[in-house]
Each structure stands twice: as structure tokens, then as C-alpha cells.
């Protein structure tokens, strides 16, 4: 790693001030992706601003609209244990990485990084969540801008994520055998006003909504409704672990399984 300093603010205001001090400063969530990246010397921040000591952005609650609101510095393990009102989300969090990673990794860190194979982007997009920052609220549909790209501006800090709770939902992950990240992960959520299907791991554009499946499921929320739908392998990630066509095929399989699991 290149040399850098670490700041450990205890209030959001302090963190914001640190982030504003230099464009070379970078927020540090649980560090489960950032630290390996730093080890490879792929980033050279001047300072890391650790967000895990800020109590005001940690924890799970419910807002007046009945949304599950998760502080950005809440760990995956805490969401797995605490998001009882949204079982599909808790289950997703409880299957990210491994137990030690879940004890450090945070929802804010995962969404800020927007790894194309991460789980949380599928949950956020699939739930039509709202990403709250120190500056504004960003609907999930506007937040994800492709692999590792988000609507976050320089220095902007995610503080909270608000998830509307669906009637039914499930996440199905087909793991890449080495990294155990999603080779394909599909989050399906049925709301009163429609169905959302978000796919991670598959596309070169990062997490995306499979609108064709959403339309089919809106009128018939059953695995059978997805039968016959297919995605093109073009634009899908093609690598050692599977071709674009294989990933496209898996999206269909995982969608069906998610619908079946959602009940």
C-alpha cells in the first residue's frame, strides 16, 4: 500500500469536513474491497476517512412510510440479524462474502463501490431503494451508472439506504466458484404497484433491471411467467467462469428460482 493517514471521525459533520479537505481523501467503510485494492496499489488516497465510528449512520430502523432504513455504516452481519422486517434483504446480507467479511463490510461501502458482481446493488435496485447521502437523496434507478460507477459526486458520503418493503421478494445468487461473488444474482421483489427484477454479476454495465421479466411477472407472479423469456448474451460479462450466453441463461434460471422462493 502507498502511505496514507487515517481519520476516524465520530460525527457525520466531521467526516464531511475531512472529505471536503482534499480530493485525494477517500471514504473507508468496512474496507473489505478497498483494502485489497489498496494492497494492489490500485488506489493512492491521501487520507482514508473511516466511517465505521459514526454512530449516527449505523443501525436499522423503520421510517413513517414503513421503509426499512439502514445506516450506511451498518455491517452485513447487522443487516442479516436486524432487517427482520425485510427477510429477503436480511437473507441477502447474510450470504455476502463470509462471516468475517460480514462483520466488517458495510452496506454503504458496497453501494459506493458498486462492484458489478456485488449483491447489495441488486437489492437496492430491485427494491427501488433510496440512497441517502450527506447532500441528497438518490433513487436507486438513478444511482447505478455502470461497473464501479455511481451518481455519487467527489466527496459525497452515503449515510443511509431506505428500502420500501415488498409483499414478496427473494434473491438468488449463483456463485462464481473462486471469489464466491455473484456470477449471476437476481433480486425479485413484488410490490403493490409492480414487480422489480434486478440482476447483478451478469452485465458489463453493472447491475440492471430486467424489464421484460418485470412485465411478465407483474401480470403473473410465477416462475412459469418467466419461461420462454430470454436475454441476449451480448453485453454480458464473458470470462474464465462463463460466457456471456451462459450468464444470460443463468439470469433466466435464477429469476425463476427467485420467484419460486419468494412464494
Amino acid at each position: 500500500m502507498y502511505a496514507f493517514d487515517i481519520e476516524r471521525p465520530t460525527t457525520l459533520a466531521e467526516a464531511v469536513k475531512h472529505m471536503a479537505a482534499s480530493e485525494e481523501n477517500q471514504a473507508l467503510g468496512g474496507g473489505q474491497t478497498l483494502i485489497p485494492t489498496l494492497k494492489q496499489r490500485l488506489a493512492s488516497p491521501e487520507k482514508l476517512i473511516s466511517l465505521t465510528g459514526i454512530d449516527e449512520i449505523r443501525g436499522i430502523c423503520e421510517d413513517d412510510a414503513g421503509r426499512i432504513c439502514i445506516g450506511a455504516a451498518t455491517t452485513h452481519a447487522e443487516v442479516a440479524a436486524g432487517a427482520t422486517a425485510y427477510p429477503a434483504l436480511a437473507a441477502l446480507a447474510g450470504n455476502i462474502g463470509d462471516p468475517a467479511v460480514r462483520n466488517r463490510g458495510t452496506i454503504g461501502g458496497s453501494l459506493a463501490n458498486n462492484d458489478p458482481s456485488a449483491c447489495y446493488p441488486a437489492a437496492a435496485l430491485g427494491s427501488g431503494a433510496t440512497i441517502v447521502t450527506d447532500k441528497r437523496e438518490i433513487p436507486a434507478d438513478d444511482y447505478f451508472e455502470g461497473m464501479f460507477a455511481t451518481a455519487l459526486e467527489e466527496g459525497e458520503i452515503i449515510t443511509e439506504v431506505k428500502f420500501p418493503v415488498p409483499q414478496k421478494a427473494a434473491y438468488m445468487k449463483f456463485e462464481q466458484p473462486a471469489s464466491r461473488f455473484a456470477l449471476v444474482g437476481v433480486f425479485v421483489a413484488k410490490y403493490a404497484d409492480g414487480v422489480r427484477v434486478a440482476v447483478t454479476g451478469a452485465s458489463e454495465e453493472g447491475v440492471f433491471r430486467w424489464s421484460e421479466a418485470e412485465a411478465a411477472l407483474a401480470s403473473d407472479f410465477s416462475a412459469g411467467a418467466v419461461e420462454g423469456l430470454s436475454l441476449s448474451g451480448d453485453g454480458m460479462i464473458s470470462d474464465l467462469h462463463g460466457s456471456g450466453d451462459y450468464r444470460a441463461h443463468l439470469v433466466g434460471v435464477m429469476t425463476k428460482r427467485a420467484v419460486a422462493a419468494a412464494g
Binding site: 466458484p177 473462486a178 471469489s179 461473488f181 470470462d239 474464465l240 467462469h241
Partner: peptide
């Protein structure tokens, strides 16, 4: 080398 870490070399 495409499988140059445990991210791509499946142990």
C-alpha cells in the same frame, strides 16, 4: 495469467 488470485483461482 487470468487466474492470478483466489478471486479467480477456485480453491
Amino acid at each position: 495469467l487470468l487466474s492470478a488470485s483466489y478471486m479467480d483461482y477456485a480453491m
